[in-house]
Amino acid sequence: MAEKTIMLACNAGMSTSLLVSKMQKAAADAGEDVKIFATSADQVDQKMSEEHPDVLMIGPQVRYLFKGLEAKLDIPVAIIDMKDYGMMNGKNVLTTALKLIK
């Protein structure tokens, strides 16, 4: 079982899937033991109870959900930096997520 779990959420969970693979590569390169997965915004509640992530990173396109998620969840919630999201910079997003967990 991974030491840390990172959940990404966007409209349909599709655009974050590529980002997940880039983050997984960055984690492997850094020797980090993390589980990273993506889901759609409407599946966040279900995935929270199934996966028990340590942090939730949401795509810029669903930033409107931030305040509501932050208020109801007891884990760090952050909006993925738009530039990192657009460039699919898995290393930067991973670094941000890990800083939020610690």
Rank of each mutant, 00 (worst) to 15 (best):
L100W: 01
D42G: 06
A2M: 01
K35I: 03
E50V: 07
P60L: 07
D33S: 15
E70T: 11
L8K: 01
K22G: 02
T95G: 01
A78R: 15
A41C: 03
T96P: 13
D84H: 12
G59N: 07
G68C: 03
L69H: 04
M88A: 14
T96G: 04
M23P: 03
I79N: 06
E32F: 06
T5G: 06
V77W: 00
V55M: 11
T5W: 01
V55S: 08
E3W: 00
K72N: 09
G68Q: 13
D29F: 00
T16V: 06
L94H: 02
N11M: 13
S21I: 09
I75D: 02
S49L: 11
A78W: 11
S15T: 15
P60M: 11
I58H: 10
G68L: 00
D33K: 11
T39M: 11
M14Y: 12
A41D: 15
S17A: 14
I75S: 04
K99E: 12
Y85L: 05
R63T: 12
Q61K: 08
P76L: 04
P53M: 01
M23D: 05
E51Q: 14
T5L: 03
L94E: 08
Q43V: 00
M57Q: 10
K35Y: 13
K72R: 14
T5N: 05
M14V: 13
T16Q: 08
H52N: 15
N92Y: 06
Q43I: 00
M14W: 05
P76R: 04
N92I: 05
V93Q: 03
K4N: 09
G86I: 10
L19W: 02
E3R: 05
L19N: 04
S40H: 05
H52C: 11
L18P: 00
M82F: 13
E3A: 07
A30M: 01
M82N: 07
E50Q: 15
V62I: 15
L98T: 10
I36N: 13
M57T: 01
L19A: 05
L65N: 13
D81T: 02
Q24N: 12
A30E: 11
M57S: 09
L8P: 00
